[in-house]
Nucleic acid binder design. Structure first.
Lengths: 243, 243
DNA sequence: ATAATCTGGTTGTCAGACAGATTTCACAAC
DNA sequence: GTTGTGAAATCTGTCTGACAACCAGATTAT
């Protein structure tokens, strides 16, 4: 029997190991959002490492936005707020087309599932919020930043209609990444008109409560949006530089 | 009218300031992917701070995945890859509250999509790895921790067969959360036998390259596994809260 | 009761030290 | 000229100790 799946050769630095330990403990619910971590000295003693190592690990989590520290006041697990999380990743997103394709696949899957659940669970308030977003998109079709903002909210409100916290969070993460890219797509004015049409179809499907047509409408929209973006990127032969 | 907007007061720590400086320089193209950064000592001198501060900043960027360090060899800017994107999802999931039902919904969606893509893209090596995991599950059906470990790898190898790094990471994160609940499900010995049968069906579907039957097999398995777990939890009147 | 002050613990930052890894480079061997 | 070798210089990984700034709660003074 071939030893194909041995160990991923856990060779790593102590600091990164501590980061993993801490995040594991957070996932296990030992430290949940809003609660305080032990002091650096205690952590160092518990893990059997020096304080510098602990500090490097904690600072990593602060930079990512998972923790918050106050000089003299300890470290705290932050409340979930996808906004700030993704802010930390802004600089890394000089995507290659390959990354964009991976992201599109995930987005297609997650958002179409959101659309399905939304069709099954939406209430009056959900529909109203989604409608409003769409209406605002139409009204601001001339103003790119506003348009994108309402486009974003449209998708976010659909996620909220699922009443599933994790989907809401996933969709929020996706939106905040997608948002970094789409200003470029708007160079082509036709983009926005098509987007509005596709959003109308999605809204109609969710309002009628039909899961499978909601999936299809959302799927179509996400894939088409990615195609439009790809076309713009290719035309400008900008090798995907600054956001 | 309340003074809502008085406090920008950007006071921050030196470490975080250095993180911003470095990322700014990277975005300006001073340090491009593949190039090496100055040594920690030089950076400390240039920025006029201590080496610890520089190290905390660099380690943050290593954790995020923007940099790579080699002991004795310096720090390098990494090529942009999907790991950055995966991180965003991972940290988001870490903070969002996870109850079993929400989690099961998300898991069903993500893993069945993985199964679909795996059926379309799997190569010989993928199939072999998945088969091996299943074989090991059979061999360790008496040892709960080992069994769960191989169960985990089975799912992980399916994710790998998608060749989509974001899905691989997302599935892994979900696995590690799910893993917190499942030791309890094994109190019922029948659980493991059923799991093996369901895994066999998934493997067969993926091996035959049939996307839709792969989706169904995975969907069935995830939902059934959740049902079994719920049954155990209810018997023990442990309310389905956090682990 | 309220305000001022003290106090112990905590984070932010620095400096120095040393082990282990890596690169460099001169030098020897073919 | 190319390749292999080994030592030196450099770098990161990690720990320890130190001190200022800071925060929260207890104590004291008004």
């Amino acid at each position: 029997m071939p030893q194909d799946n041995i160990r991923p050769v856990g060779r790593t630095t102590l600091t990164q190991a501590i980061v993993n330990e801490i995040t594991d403990l957070m996932m296990k619910g030992v430290w949940r959002p809003g609660s305080a971590l032990p002091s650096e000295k205690e952590l160092a003693a518990s893990f059997g490492v020096g304080r510098s190592t602990i500090r490097e690990a904690l600072q990593s989590l602060v930079t990512i936005g998972v923790l918050e520290t106050r000089a003299g006041g300890g470290a705290w697990v932050r409340e979930p707020n996808s906004q700030l999380l993704s802010g930390a990743f802004r600089w890394g997103l000089l995507l290659s087309p390959h990354n964009l394709q991976d992201l599109t696949e995930v987005r297609t899957s997650v958002e179409s599932e959101c659309a399905r659940l939304a069709a099954e669970r939406r209430d009056e308030a959900d529909i109203r919020r989604i409608e409003e977003s769409l209406e605002c998109m139409r009204r601001h079709r001339a103003d790119d930043p506003s348009f994108m903002e309402w486009d974003n909210r449209f998708h976010q409100h659909i996620a909220q209609a699922t009443k599933n916290e994790i989907f809401i969070n996933l969709a929020g993460t996706i939106q905040s990444i997608v948002r970094l890219w789409y200003p470029r797509a708007y160079r082509n004015p036709e983009t926005k008109e098509r987007a509005i049409e596709e959003h109308e179809a999605i809204l109609a499907a969710i309002r009628s409560g039909d899961p499978s047509s909601s999936i299809m409408a959302m799927r179509f929209h996400v894939i088409e949006a990615a195609n439009r973006l790809n076309r713009v990127l290719r035309e400008h032969t900008e090798t995907g530089k600054e956001p």
